[in-house]
């Protein structure tokens, strides 16, 4: 079974809504308190990036619950300026510099996987997964 839901990020309070959605889904799938907190914090970071640097975007939460796979997939999409050098934003220490893609190494560590796709002038899609073990 897979279920998808999403939140538009326009105002700062939408970050809270995205967090809430992520936490509910994580809880429903059976993640413990600590992992719920991690997933929520990761969503919060991604949503905040959209709010601060892309203005408008969307956080989509997918709950995958099958025999073989149990995971939360978070996808952050925006039509912002895009990330110029993805390798660079994945480098440690970049998070303190601000700008699009800030804090991604931290998000990657909170989750199990992180993929970034970005086109300059068109926007960025970030997909992060957390597996229930």
């Amino acid at each position: 079974m897979a279920s998808k839901s999403s939140v538009e990020i326009i105002t700062e309070w939408d970050i809270v809504a995205a967090r809430q959605l992520g936490r509910n889904e994580a809880k429903a799938l059976g993640f413990g308190t600590v992992d719920q907190a991690r997933i929520t914090t990761a969503i919060s970071e991604l949503a905040r990036n959209i709010y601060l640097y892309a203005n408008i975007g969307r956080i989509e939460i997918e709950r995958v619950d099958t025999e073989t796979e149990k995971k939360i997939v978070v996808t952050a999409t925006d039509q912002g300026p895009g990330i110029h050098d993805i390798r660079k934003v994945m480098e440690e220490g970049y998070s303190t510099s601000g700008g699009v893609g800030a804090g991604l190494p931290g998000v990657k560590r909170l989750m199990d996987s992180l993929e970034v796709q970005s086109v300059i002038g068109e926007g960025t899609t970030i997909r992060a997964e957390k597996w229930l073990r």
Partner: peptide
């Protein structure tokens, strides 16, 4: 306790970043 866990997740992030910068 749950509240403290939430707060510490962010500290943990900073801590890990520090660790990995040290390694670098």
């Amino acid at each position: 306790y749950d509240f403290l866990i939430e707060v510490m997740v962010h500290y943990g992030m900073a801590h890990r970043e520090h660790q990995s910068l040290l390694q670098k």
